[in-house]
Amino acid sequence: MAEPEGLRHAAIAWLEKRTFDRQISLTRDQIGDFEWDGKPFRLIPSQQGIWKPRGFEATLSIVTTFRAPGQKRPYDDEVGADGLIRYKWRGDNPLHHENAGLRRAMVLRLPIIWFIGVGGAPPEYQVVAPVYLADEEPEKQQFILAPLAEEDFAVESLEDGIAVPALKRYLMRETRVRLHQPVFRSTVLRAYENHCAVCNLAHPELLDAAHIVDDSHELGTPTIGNGMALCKIHHAAFDRRFLGIRPDYTVEIRQDLLDEVDGPMLRHGLQDLHGKPLMMLPKAKRDRPDNDKLAWAYERFRTATVADVA
């Protein structure tokens, strides 16, 4: 069959709704719930990393497999100096049917879906969509991807495949918002089993993946060891240095807040946590907060004054 008109956009809209606008990751079974014309329609490949359904002219979706920290992925996808993502060919034959499908999506400017593995059992995938193929670098055997909204995607904005300076900053920001932040969130929340590390709240819609070291700092890498699952209030309290966490995973509350008299939210939500251990930590030691990063953030908390965070 030929590609049904409107299917791509319908699939992307369905995935956006199903993930609460990229807030949660999905298993293959959950992705398999998508239907087109009243029948199940597969959006994710069963094995290979590039999926072009039978009869389709161009690729519909791509997959990046999960690898635990320190493990090497089968293909070295990376972000280039221009803020765009490089996605490796399948093998080294430019005419391989999967590479040809990606090339056709590039020529037709069709949006594709990117499923990025974030771990779990069964495996879960963060959805990044739409993604457009902006260009190809055949000498490096790779395509250039742009995770942009349809209205923002314009190949004409690139000069010889390289973004001009103003666009480069925009692309880097969009790559962080549309790619790195959702993947970081999914991997951190999965490691904490969708519980707040401080209070154990178990509603993912009310949880954030908090950076221990700000992502603007050189130590602030988007890795699980630099993240904690925190509910909205404890994330804000951590970022504003009302709440600190010692390298031994003990919670501290800033002294002026301990001295304050207010209602039950302050008392139970913050003051009563002072001196208590974190209520949730990842089972895998490799996923727990990095001690050096915690020490950095704790020293920042310990030396903070009211004026610093006002």
Rank of each mutant, 00 (worst) to 15 (best):
F153C: 09
A202C: 14
R178I: 11
L148N: 03
E136W: 01
R176W: 03
V155L: 14
H180I: 15
I116T: 03
E136S: 12
L206Q: 07
A121M: 12
S186P: 00
I112L: 12
H180Q: 04
D160W: 01
G120K: 08
I113D: 02
L148K: 09
P165E: 15
H203R: 13
F153T: 05
A134L: 07
W114K: 11
V164Y: 12
E150Q: 07
R176Q: 10
P147M: 08
V118C: 12
F115D: 03
N194G: 09
L133I: 15
Y132D: 00
R104V: 10
P204L: 15
L179N: 04
V155M: 12
L102N: 03
F115Y: 08
A197M: 10
K140M: 08
T187P: 07
G120M: 08
W114I: 02
G117N: 04
F184G: 04
R190M: 09
L148Y: 01
I162Y: 04
G161W: 03
K140Y: 06
E137I: 15
P111K: 06
R169V: 09
A100L: 13
P182T: 15
G119V: 13
A129M: 07
V188T: 13
V177E: 02
K140D: 04
V107P: 00
I144M: 05
E205Y: 10
I112Y: 01
P111R: 10
C199G: 07
H203F: 14
A129F: 07
W114M: 06
R104F: 01
V177I: 15
P165Q: 15
L207N: 05
W114Q: 08
Y125P: 01
A149Q: 07
V183A: 11
I113P: 00
